[in-house]
Design a protein around this nucleic acid. Structure first.
Lengths: 153, 153
DNA sequence: GCCTTTAATAAGAATAATTCTTAAATAGTA
DNA sequence: TACTATTTAAGAATTATTCTTATTAAAGGC
């Protein structure tokens, strides 16, 4: 995934403030730090991982606050929840349409984009199903790092 | 998804027996019934749901046995685990490449196939990532039934 | 800048899904 | 039929997540 530039990062913070005001939500220290951490994390962290990272800056923060804030951000469409086959919930800040590559060995998740897929017409049979809003590819396999480890064996 | 015919259902049972023998696993009443239930369930059941269904035939079966058997079947590639955004784990028997339509309202999952997507070349950049083994689409939206309910409102 | 109101927080209890432990039951085999 | 190694049922333990409640802190009016 391409790096986000400073401009877009800044506009994301502004959007967060706007969203909070519109909803009558308070802009707390905790919310801001959790959101900042999520924006700068590129590894699809778990709730626990985010909690540990934010705790470096806010030592008294509780895990529950991280859960609540993530639920809030998700509702506002500012983060995506990813349920992995490990059974863990991971989060990512949302940079528009993209897809996932998951390594079955080390469970790391990488993003990729595929514009021509995104604009491709879905099979016409699907129209009868209802109103489709999103389509995401999950590709699984073994990443290069894990393949190398296997060879050494 | 197309109905499976009797022939294929039978061959699946035979494969299960073969798999068990090869692995030195015992063919228990419980394993057979859990597998049968999974094969004939077309609604991507949760562990709990499978447990309740199998219990009609084996009233003394334990939830843990269902968990263990599903883990076994998964390892053998005879079932797929689907982690939904509700946070529930659902299962399906594996009938080759297919994709999922998930309703955000009622959370039901439907299968669909898309042959031309399955054989389509992935973006060449992905080659550097590693060895990709599977690719699945998850399309989300609102199903017709839920759309109708919304209109009545 | 201070006060008031109301929402948000931390802490720990509660819940729910899943896994583990152990004694009893059973499949596969001699 | 008897033996051995798995598998099972039952319930305890674990883990992720949500709830409860008393305390703290934002936002807005003064």
């Amino acid at each position: 995934m391409l790096d986000q530039d400073e401009q877009s990062l800044h506009s994301r913070f502004t959007n967060f403030e706007k969203f909070c005001r519109k909803k009558g939500l308070k802009m707390t220290h905790q919310r801001l730090e959790i959101y900042r951490e999520l924006l700068t994390s590129k590894d699809h962290p778990t709730v626990e991982a985010l909690f540990l990272r934010v705790r470096k800056r806010i030592p008294t923060i509780s895990l529950d606050t991280v859960y609540r804030t993530l639920a809030l951000l998700e509702e506002a469409g500012m983060t995506n929840r990813i349920q992995t086959s490990e059974g863990l919930t991971r989060f990512e800040s949302d940079y528009g349409a993209h897809h996932h590559l998951i390594c079955k060995k080390c469970q790391t998740i990488e993003d990729f984009t595929w514009k021509s897929f995104d604009t491709m017409l879905l099979p016409p049979e699907l129209e009868a199903w209802g109103a489709i809003q999103t389509r995401n590819i999950v590709a699984e396999g073994i990443c290069t790092a894990c393949l190398k480890k296997e060879k050494k064996h």
